[in-house]
Amino acid sequence: MMDTFQLVARGLACRLGLDAADIKAEDELLTLGIDSLDAAELLMELEDKLGVEIEQTKKLKTVGDVVAAIDEASE
């Protein structure tokens, strides 16, 4: 099964027209071209896919932050 990072990277790559392999955990969302609306939409899609509810209490700055938020929600 795909791990959370791969899922997020694939979702981002699809939006940005990039190769998922080029996306790293430390990449900042804004630098990649993902604004707060894009991030909210991506999380919504991942919630559907994973069947979890992600509480967006913390500011999500990097790809790694998104992965951590999902993992936290999945526990």
Binding site: S36, L37, E41, M44, D48
Partner: peptide, 10 residues
């Protein structure tokens, strides 16, 4: 309500 898009309004 949680599935209403963040892009709905704009």
């Amino acid at each position: 309500a949680r599935r209403v898009s963040p892009f709905f309004v704009p």
